[in-house]
Design a protein around this nucleic acid. Structure first.
Length: 263
DNA sequence: TGTGATGTTGAATG
DNA sequence: GCATTCAACATCAC
């Protein structure tokens, strides 16, 4: 999926396509993508409304309506947005679309259907109930260090936990650990304070750079991050080869000789 | 043809 | 409570 930088790019795309437009009709092609509401209710609530803004927190994109309510767009692994005019240009796995009063359409595409769409009347209560942690680009160094304190799980699991920190995904987590030379199996609170701060700074740096690229997760620049994330790639300064295993439930790439394991 | 994929959730287990 | 593992969700590409 889209991780934080990709969702940020979706936000930019959404803002451009939807803000200020009136929704004439909501066409639903797959009921199951709605989690806390039905397709009928969703359509009824949104028709004749206008989008007035959007707010991203981690991988969650909240879109504000002119009646004060919100919708959540969560892209799962394969969610995507497409803005178009001609019906022939509808994305292949469109699950629903907004048809605006000017006849333009914004389709939500998602082959694997891991995406989730919610209708939200109380945004703060919704976020509190989800237990969603602060955005990875908003959290302060102090709060980041405090969150690490006492944690006995792996650093990889820590970075992926959306309740602690929202926005990091599998690829960017591997990138941060690789660049800071910390082994993904390191125990979070055993890492030195100096290294913890390095992880924090690198996380901000990597995400900031990625956000600036406005990445489209289907098409990354040639020299994008994680080029190294291929088995057998030789680590920096000839430090051994990249290998992978499942850590915190996700396929994790790392270089044993390059990344120190704090235990 | 079997396998794994940028994510989340809930249940079961230690 | 904390952390981990697993299965489920559903489809596509290799």
């Amino acid at each position: 999926m889209p991780e934080l930088p990709e969702v940020n790019a979706f936000k930019n795309y959404f803002d451009e396509a939807a803000i200020g437009r009136t929704i004439r009709e909501v066409v639903v092609l797959d009921n199951k993508i709605f989690r806390n509401t039905t397709a009928e209710n969703f359509a009824m609530k949104l028709e004749n409304r206008q989008f007035v803004g959007s707010y991203r927190r981690g991988k969650y994109l909240f879109c504000a309506l002119d009646d004060g309510n919100h919708i959540l767009l969560h892209f799962g692994m394969t969610g995507d947005l497409k803005y178009y005019n001609d019906s022939l240009d509808a994305p292949k796995h469109e699950r629903f679309r907004f048809e605006f009063s000017d006849n333009m359409k914004l389709g939500f595409d998602c082959p694997r259907k891991f995406a989730r769409i919610d209708y939200i009347e109380d945004l703060e209560a919704y976020i509190a109930q989800k237990n969603l942690g602060p955005d990875a680009l908003e959290i302060s160094e102090h709060d980041f260090l405090a969150a690490m304190s006492g944690k006995s799980g792996t650093i990889k699991g820590f970075l992926l936990n959306q309740k602690v920190l929202s926005g990091m995904g599998n690829l960017y987590a591997d990138e941060v650990l690789y660049q800071t030379r910390v082994h993904p199996l390191s125990i979070t609170d055993r890492i030195s304070t100096k290294k913890k701060k390095e992880i924090y700074r690198k996380m901000i740096e990597v995400l900031t750079r990625a956000v600036e690229e406005n990445p489209d997760y289907k098409e990354y620049p040639e020299d994008w991050f994680w080029k190294w994330r291929v088995e057998g790639t030789v680590g920096p300064a000839g430090k051994g080869k990249v290998t992978f295993s499942t850590i915190a439930g996700r396929t994790t790439y790392y270089c044993n000789a390059w990344q120190r394991k704090y235990t």
